[in-house]
Design a protein around this nucleic acid. Structure first.
Length: 777
DNA sequence: TACCAGGAGGTTTTT
DNA sequence: CCTCCTGGTA
C-alpha cells in the first residue's frame, strides 16, 4: 500500500482510491474531507493520470490553495502546479479570458465586483427614467443575480409570467428592462459581473460545441468541494463538463448548506444519485475535530431540521469541557467578556491568540469585540468586511489599471477621469455620457474624439491630456510588466503625491494602502507562478483578472498570532481550538430576515451547526440582553437555538441570573412578565443615558437583571480595581449590586470567587475574573 | 467646478 | 452609529 493511504480510516481510504465513475462523498463536519480530496488527487496522479486533466473546484481561494499545497506535500514534487484547482469563479474567469472573443468580449474583460454592478445599475435606472427609490440598486442587483444563478437570462426573465407578477406586486414592473439594459451596458463596457462568470461560462459551453468538447476532454477528472452550496448554473456547467467521462466526484454535507441566498440548492446533492448511473456513495461519519460535548450539541440541534440525509456523526475524542453559555447585559459587555476570557484561557491553558476565533452572524457585530480586544492589547484580525480592494483609494488606483487594459470600462473611467482633479467635472462627464449614448459609442470613444463635440477649450485640453496619458501607459504595456506600469501610473498621475501630501491620519493610511497595493503587484510579477499555477502571464491583464476575485480571507499570514474574527459564513471549512459564537439572540441569529419560512429558519439552524462544529476543544455561546443597533439600544430575546441545546453538555454558570437561563419554561415566564418588550423593542438614544440618571424612568425590560435586585448607580468615576489580592473584610463597589463587604474568598487561583454581602442586595457570589469590582477600602 | 454642511436612510450571509 | 447623497456657497 502506498504511504499516503496510511492514516486513513476505511471509508476515507475507499473514497480516496476510487478512480473511475461518479462518486459522492457525504462528509460530516470535521470528518477529514480535505484530507480525502487531496489524497484522492494524489492517488489519481500516482495512477498515471496527468495533472493537466484534473479539475478541482472549491468555493474559496483559500480552500483551493490549501488543497494544492497538500497535494504537493503528498507527491513531493512540482507536478501539482499543473492541476486546475481554483474557485468556480476564478477557474471560469481564466477559461473565459481565453475564449471571450467568441462571445464578443475582449480577452481583457473587466470583472465587476458588487459595488461596480450596483453603480452600473444606478446609471441604467436613471437613464431609463425610473425612480431609484423603487429600483434600489441592491434590490435590483439581488434580483438580477438570483435570475442569473437560476439560468434565467434577460429575455426569459421578461417572458416569465411568475417573475413578472412578482415584480408587478413589488411595484417594479420595469425590472426586466433594467436587467436587459444592465446586461447591454456591461457588455458595452467589456465587463462581466460575478454571476456572469458562471452564466457566460454556461452559455459558452452550451453554444459552442467545439469549446465544450475541448474542455470535456481536458478535464477528464472533476472534483467539486462543498457540493451542497452549488447553484443551478454551477450544476449545469459541471454536468456538461462531466458528461463524457463521468469521472465526477462531489463532496458535501447537506447539514452545512448555508448559501441558498446565493442560489445554492440542496437539491443538487440530493439529485446527484439520479444524474448518473452507478453512483458510488461513501459516508464519512467519524469526526476528528471536536470533543464529544461539542459534537453532541451540534447533533442535537441539527435534529430539529427536517429532511436531512441520514447520517450520524461520532467521535473517539474525549468528552472535553461542557459548552459554556454566557449571558451579558449589552453587546459591549459581550465583547468584554470574550476579551477577558481569551486572556484567561491564554494563561490557564497556554493558548496563543491564534487559537481563538470569534464568530458572528453579521459583520456589524465585530465592533464590540474589536474595542475590547484593542483595550486588552490582544492582537486580532478581522476577516471579511470591507476588503482591501474595496477601499476608495485602492479602487481608484485599480481603475487606472483597468482603463489601461480595457478602455471600454466606463465605470473605471468615470472614477478616475477627474481624480486627481484635472478640471473635468460633473457637467462634462454628464455631457460625455449623453454623447456616448446618442452616437452609440463608448465613453472612451467620446474622449478620443472630443474635438468633435464642442467642449469648452479648457475642458477639451484637459480631456486630450487625459487621453494622451492613458495612451502613454498603454504603450508601456508591451515592454513593461504590471508592476513597472503601476509605478508609472502612480507617479505620472500625481496620485501617489496627492496622498503623500495629505498628512491627516486617514491620508497617511491611504498612502500606505496604495504602497501596499504596489507591493502586492510587485509580488505578483515576481512570484514564479500565478495562483492558477500557470507560468509566465505577468501582464497587467492577468493581474487584474485575479484581483477582483480575491477576498480578505485569502490573505496569507496564516500563522500570524492573532485572534480571528469573522462571520460564520466565512468560517466554513475552518477549525479552531477555542471558538466564541456571539449574538445568539432572536432577530440577530436567527436573523429577522430569515424566520419567515421553514426553509429559511432551517438554513439559520444549519449556520448555527456550522458555527458549533468549528470548535475543537472549547466552545462559548454568548448573547446579550440588549445591543446597540442603529445607534440605539435594542432589546432581544435569547435565540431559540439555545432552547434546543441538550442540558447535559451545557455549563450555564455564566449565564447570569435572569431570563431563560435555567429551564426553558422560565423563558416564557420572563416573557410574560415583560410583555410589551418582547421581540426587538427600540429605545431612543436618550434612554442610553438612563442608567446614569436617577430621575429617568427605566423601562422594566431594559435592566434585565433578576427583578429583586435593587438598581445601583455606579459612581461617575467607577473604575474596576485589580482584585488579585482582594482580602476578606474589604469594602467593594459592584457596578450593579452596589456597595458590600467581602465575607469569603474561595475558588481556584485562576478562577477566584468572592462572597460579598451587599448593603442593598444581600449576599452574592462574584467571579472575580468577570465581575467589575472597585475596592473602596 | 469644488467643497462643505446637513439630512436621510441603511444591517444578512459572499464569489 | 455609519455612509451616501443633496443642495447651497465660494
Amino acid at each position: 500500500m502506498q504511504d499516503y493511504l496510511k492514516g486513513l480510516n476505511e471509508p476515507q481510504r475507499e473514497a480516496a482510491t476510487h478512480i473511475n465513475g461518479p462518486l459522492m462523498i457525504v462528509a460530516g463536519a470535521g470528518s477529514g474531507k480535505t484530507k480525502v480530496l487531496t489524497t484522492r488527487i494524489a492517488h489519481l496522479m500516482a495512477n498515471g493520470i496527468d495533472a493537466f486533466n484534473i479539475l478541482a473546484l472549491t468555493f474559496t481561494n483559500k480552500a483551493a490553495a490549501e488543497m494544492k499545497e497538500r497535494v504537493e506535500k503528498i507527491l513531493g514534487n512540482n507536478e501539482a502546479r499543473n492541476l486546475y484547482i481554483g474557485t468556480f469563479h476564478s477557474v471560469f474567469a481564466r477559461i473565459l479570458r481565453a475564449e471571450a472573443p467568441r462571445i464578443g468580449y475582449p480577452n481583457n474583460f473587466t470583472i465587476y465586483d458588487t459595488d461596480d454592478s450596483r453603480s452600473v445599475i444606478k446609471t441604467v435606472v436613471n437613464e431609463l427614467n425610473l425612480d431609484d427609490k423603487l429600483y434600489k440598486p441592491n434590490v435590483v442587483h439581488n434580483r438580477i443575480s438570483s435570475a442569473k444563478n437560476a439560468l434565467v437570462g434577460p429575455d426569459e426573465y421578461a417572458n416569465d409570467y411568475y417573475l413578472q407578477q412578482e415584480d408587478m406586486r413589488a411595484n417594479r414592473p420595469a425590472l426586466a428592462q433594467v436587467y436587459k439594459a444592465y446586461q447591454v451596458r456591461c457588455f458595452k463596457n467589456g465587463a462581466m459581473d460575478f454571476d456572469d462568470l458562471l452564466f457566460k461560462m454556461y452559455e459558452l459551453l452550451r453554444d459552442f460545441p467545439e469549446v465544450l468538447h475541448k474542455y470535456q476532454h481536458k478535464f477528464k477528472y472533476i472534483l467539486i468541494d462543498e457540493y451542497q452550496d452549488t447553484n443551478p448554473v454551477q450544476y449545469q456547467i459541471t454536468k456538461l463538463l462531466a458528461a463524457v467521462n463521468e469521472n465526477i466526484c462531489v463532496v458535501g454535507d447537506d447539514a452545512q448548506s448555508i448559501y441558498s441566498f446565493r442560489g445554492a440548492t440542496i437539491e443538487n446533492i440530493l439529485q446527484f444519485q439520479q444524474d448518473y448511473d452507478d453512483v458510488k456513495v461513501i459516508k464519512l461519519e467519524q469526526n476528528y475535530r471536536s470533543t464529544q460535548s461539542i459534537l453532541n450539541v451540534a447533533n442535537e440541534v441539527i435534529k430539529n431540521n427536517k429532511g436531512q440525509l441520514p447520517k450520524s456523526l461520532w467521535t473517539e475524542n474525549a468528552h472535553g469541557e461542557k459548552i459554556k453559555l454566557v449571558r451579558t447585559m449589552t453587546d459591549n459587555d459581550e465583547g468584554k467578556y470574550v476579551a477577558d476570557t481569551i486572556q484567561e484561557q491564554k494563561l490557564r491553558n497556554h493558548y496563543h491568540n491564534k487559537h481563538f476565533a470569534i464568530l458572528y452572524r453579521t459583520n456589524a457585530q465585530s465592533r464590540s469585540y474589536e474595542e475590547s480586544l484593542r483595550r486588552m492589547g490582544i492582537a486580532y484580525r478581522i476577516f471579511g468586511g470591507i476588503s482591501f480592494y474595496q477601499r476608495k483609494e485602492i479602487k481608484d488606483f485599480i481603475s487606472y489599471l483597468r482603463v489601461i487594459v480595457n478602455t471600454r470600462d466606463e465605470e473605471a473611467l468615470k472614477r478616475i477621469i477627474n481624480y486627481p482633479i484635472r478640471g473635468i467635472g460633473k457637467t462634462s462627464v454628464e455631457k460625455i455620457v449623453i454623447f456616448a449614448n446618442d452616437q452609440n459609442i463608448t465613453f472612451w470613444d467620446v474622449l478620443t474624439r472630443a474635438s468633435e463635440f464642442g467642449f469648452k477649450a479648457g475642458t477639451l485640453e484637459a480631456i486630450q491630456n487625459f487621453v494622451t496619458m492613458i495612451r502613454y501607459f498603454q504603450s508601456m504595456l508591451e515592454q513593461k510588466n504590471a508592476y513597472d506600469v503601476a509605478v508609472q501610473v502612480g507617479k505620472h498621475t500625481n496620485f501617489v503625491k496627492e496622498l503623500f501630501n495629505d498628512k491627516s491620519t486617514e491620508g497617511l493610511a491611504r498612502y500606505e494602502n496604495v504602497q501596499e497595493l504596489l507591493n502586492s503587484i510587485k509580488e505578483f510579477t515576481e512570484s514564479p507562478d500565478n495562483e492558477d499555477g500557470e507560468v509566465g502571464d505577468k501582464t497587467l491583464g492577468a493581474y487584474l483578472q485575479q484581483i477582483t476575485l480575491l477576498t480578505d480571507a485569502d490573505e496569507k499570514d496564516e500563522n500570524a498570532d492573532v485572534v480571528k474574527l469573522m462571520t460564520i459564513h466565512a468560517a466554513k471549512g475552518l477549525e479552531f481550538p477555542v471558538v466564541f459564537v456571539g449574538g445568539l439572540e432572536e432577530t440577530l441569529f436567527p436573523n429577522a430576515m430569515s424566520i419567515n419560512t421553514r426553509e429559511e429558519l432551517e438554513e439559520e439552524r444549519r449556520l448555527f451547526y456550522v458555527a458549533v462544529t468549528r470548535a475543537e476543544k472549547h466552545l462559548f455561546l454568548t448573547y446579550a440582553n440588549a445591543r446597540y443597533r442603529f445607534g440605539s439600544l435594542t432589546q432581544n430575546e435569547p435565540s431559540r437555538f439555545l432552547d434546543e441545546l441538550p442540558e447535559t453538555f451545557l455549563d450555564r454558570t455564566y449565564a447570569g441570573g435572569g431570563a431563560r437561563n435555567q429551564t426553558s419554561n422560565m423563558g416564557s415566564a420572563f416573557a410574560r412578565m415583560h410583555r410589551g418588550f418582547e421581540g426587538n423593542t427600540q429605545f431612543s438614544n436618550a434612554s442610553r443615558q438612563a442608567p446614569k440618571s436617577k430621575t429617568s424612568a427605566l423601562p422594566t425590560g431594559l435592566t434585565s437583571k433578576p427583578p429583586q435586585t435593587v438598581q445601583h448607580i455606579p459612581s461617575k468615576d467607577f473604575v474596576p480595581s485589580d482584585t488579585t489580592n482582594l482580602q476578606e473584610g474589604q469594602k467593594v463597589e459592584h457596578q450593579k449590586f452596589g456597595y458590600g463587604l467581602v465575607t469569603k474568598l474561595e475558588g481556584s487561583a485562576h478562577n477566584p470567587i468572592a462572597t460579598v454581602k451587599f448593603e442593598l442586595n444581600g449576599e452574592k457570589k462574584i467571579m472575580l475574573n468577570y465581575a467589575k469590582l472597585r475596592i473602596v477600602e
